[in-house]
Structure formats: structure tokens, C-alpha cells
Computed example of a mutant assay.
Amino acid sequence: MTFEDFLDMMSVFSDNAPKSVKVEYAFRIYDFDNDDTLSNSDLTEVINRLTGGNDDERLKLPKEDMEMLINNIYQEADLDDDDMLSFAEFEHVISKAPDFVTSFRIRL
């Protein structure tokens, strides 16, 4: 990663970055397998990282809870019922979260 790449990455977390740029960057962060969709494996990885499940098995959600959470995400966001989230579906869900722009930032 070059210094310019680093600056581009960090500029996304600025208060002045447009919402569209923040949404695109968030989608790319959550798309662990880089297939331009958020699948079960991507959502599982996100949830594990948010709950500390990767590093400490004691904190990992039980399988039933993980499945229920992913199913709830799909019920809310998967508009075409293909069990994955496209960028458009992700963007639609983010549009319902008015605090996304202010929370997706780094303050120094």
C-alpha cells in the first residue's frame, strides 16, 4: 500500500466524505471474499469480528443465534431473496440508517 492509497483510505473516514463513498467503502470492507456480494460467509465473518468470535471461542455466537441473526439480516435487506446482499441492497439498507454517515468516521 502506498502512502497515497493510505490517504485515500483514511479520507473515507472524514466527516466531509460523501455518503456514497462511505457506503461503497463499507461494502468493500464487509465483502471478505471480494465477490461483490455479501454472502453467508461474509456476514458470519462480520458478526464474528463484531462479537469477538474469531479470537476467543467463548465469545463466539452459538450456531443457532448466528443463523437467526443472518436470517433477520436477509429478511430486512435481501430484496431479491437470493440469500446474498448486492451493493444496491446494502446501499438501500444503509439509506435507512441516518446515523451511518456520522458513525462511519475516525476523529483525531
Rank of each mutant, 00 (worst) to 15 (best):
N34L: 12
F6N: 06
K63D: 14
D55E: 14
I73N: 01
I70V: 15
F87C: 01
F104L: 01
M84P: 00
D65I: 14
D82M: 06
D42R: 05
E24I: 00
S86T: 15
P18S: 13
L85P: 00
G53E: 04
K22C: 09
N34G: 06
T102W: 03
D35C: 13
H92L: 02
E91R: 10
A26W: 10
F90W: 07
D80W: 00
N16G: 02
D83L: 04
M10T: 11
N54P: 00
M68P: 00
M10N: 10
S103P: 02
V21W: 01
V23I: 15
F87K: 05
K60A: 15
R58K: 14
F100W: 07
L108T: 04
T102A: 12
F100C: 11
G53Y: 00
S20F: 03
I70N: 01
F100I: 02
K19I: 15
L50H: 06
T102C: 12
F100G: 07
D36M: 13
A77K: 04
F13Y: 14
D36T: 11
D31V: 02
I106G: 07
F13P: 07
F27C: 01
V12Y: 05
D36E: 15
D65V: 07
D78A: 02
D55Y: 10
T44L: 08
S20R: 15
I94N: 03
D55I: 07
N34Q: 14
L59Y: 15
E4Y: 04
D8H: 14
D80F: 02
E91G: 06
L108K: 02
F100T: 11
F6Q: 05
D33E: 07
I47L: 14
L7F: 02
T51H: 01
Y30H: 13
E57D: 08
V93D: 00
K60M: 12
F90P: 06
H92A: 13
D15L: 08
N54A: 06
V93A: 13
R107K: 14
F104M: 12
E45H: 15
P18K: 08
D83Y: 03
D83K: 09
S20H: 10
D15P: 06
D78V: 08
E45W: 04
M84S: 04
T37K: 10
F13N: 00
Y74H: 11
T44I: 10
D81N: 12
E45P: 00
L79R: 11
F90H: 08
F90S: 03
D8Q: 13
D56F: 12
M1P: 11
Y30R: 07
S14F: 03
K60T: 10
L108Y: 08
R49C: 12
M9Y: 02
F3P: 05
M66W: 12
T102Q: 14
N72M: 10
M1E: 03
E76W: 09
E57R: 14
A97I: 15
D81R: 11
A17K: 08
I106V: 15
Y30N: 06
K63C: 06
P18Q: 10
D42V: 04
D81V: 04
E24Q: 14
F100M: 11
I47H: 08
N40F: 06
R107P: 01
K96T: 09
Q75P: 01
D65C: 08
P62T: 03
P18T: 10
D33S: 11
K19E: 10
T51W: 05
Y30F: 15
E4D: 09
R49L: 15
E4R: 11
S20L: 09
L38H: 04
F27S: 04
K22I: 02
N16M: 03
R105A: 12
